[in-house]
Simulated scan of single mutants.
Amino acid sequence: MATLQSLFALMVLVTICSAAPKKPTLKIPEECKGKGFCSIKPEGYDEMQAEVNKLLNNQFIAQNFADRIGDDVEMGTVEISPESDWHNCPTRKKREPMYAYSHPNDTESADYIIQNDMIQQPVDIVSCANDLISKENSEKEECFQHFGLSSFNYKSKCETSYTFRNYFVYDYNKKQIVIKSYEVPCCCTCKISSSQ
């Protein structure tokens, strides 16, 4: 009789455990580990959306998104600065949905940026596009060449500049939506320095 009771108790325990909701398992794509923004949707990301949607409501949207309506640019579109401005620093801008941010030197975890029907947070990546200028015209890729900086012992170079932008992130451990800041390449800047 005791064996039958133990067997029954074991069956009840197995049933309860299998009925409990599964915690989604998120796997960082190998290509993204430790490399910042990742446009590849991690395995388990869609299952996480159910938990995120429970946290989203009209009040959250009204409080946090009144000022977040941006320009209507299609995802994946690449914009190049006008050729007439290439004597300065030519730029390339690409807008992509990013699903995770994997911190340098951390290959085991990542921050999961919320992307769904209610919240879309594209990342605009702006970088220098010196590859568009022929080497004959670039004079070692210096910018503002027409100013004659070399005659004053100065040199110039186009470099990508960064800024911090805020994104809504799902905190996997606390089961909360939090705001985190990430460094994003925002423009190409002409840096001037002494050539001596």
Results as ranks from 00 to 15, higher is better:
2 A>H: 12
2 A>F: 12
2 A>R: 15
9 A>Q: 13
10 L>M: 10
11 M>N: 09
12 V>I: 13
15 T>V: 13
17 C>D: 06
18 S>T: 10
20 A>Q: 14
21 P>Q: 07
22 K>F: 03
24 P>Y: 04
24 P>A: 03
29 P>I: 01
33 K>Q: 10
35 K>T: 10
37 F>Y: 02
38 C>M: 00
40 I>W: 05
43 E>F: 05
49 Q>P: 01
53 N>H: 07
55 L>P: 11
56 L>Y: 01
61 I>D: 06
64 N>I: 07
76 G>Y: 00
78 V>K: 13
80 I>G: 06
86 W>Q: 05
87 H>R: 08
90 P>E: 00
90 P>H: 02
91 T>M: 12
91 T>N: 03
91 T>A: 09
92 R>D: 05
93 K>G: 06
98 M>C: 07
99 Y>P: 03
100 A>L: 15
100 A>V: 00
104 P>W: 03
106 D>H: 07
108 E>C: 04
109 S>W: 06
111 D>S: 09
113 I>M: 05
114 I>E: 01
115 Q>N: 13
116 N>L: 08
117 D>C: 02
117 D>T: 10
118 M>Y: 15
120 Q>I: 12
122 P>Q: 03
123 V>R: 09
123 V>S: 06
124 D>M: 10
124 D>H: 07
125 I>Y: 15
134 S>K: 15
142 E>G: 09
149 L>Q: 07
149 L>D: 04
154 Y>K: 14
155 K>C: 10
155 K>M: 11
157 K>H: 10
161 S>T: 15
164 F>M: 12
164 F>G: 03
166 N>G: 07
167 Y>H: 03
168 F>R: 05
171 D>K: 00
172 Y>T: 08
173 N>Q: 14
173 N>F: 13
187 C>A: 07
188 C>N: 03
189 T>N: 13
189 T>H: 13
190 C>F: 09
193 S>A: 13
193 S>P: 00
195 S>M: 13
195 S>F: 06
196 Q>L: 14
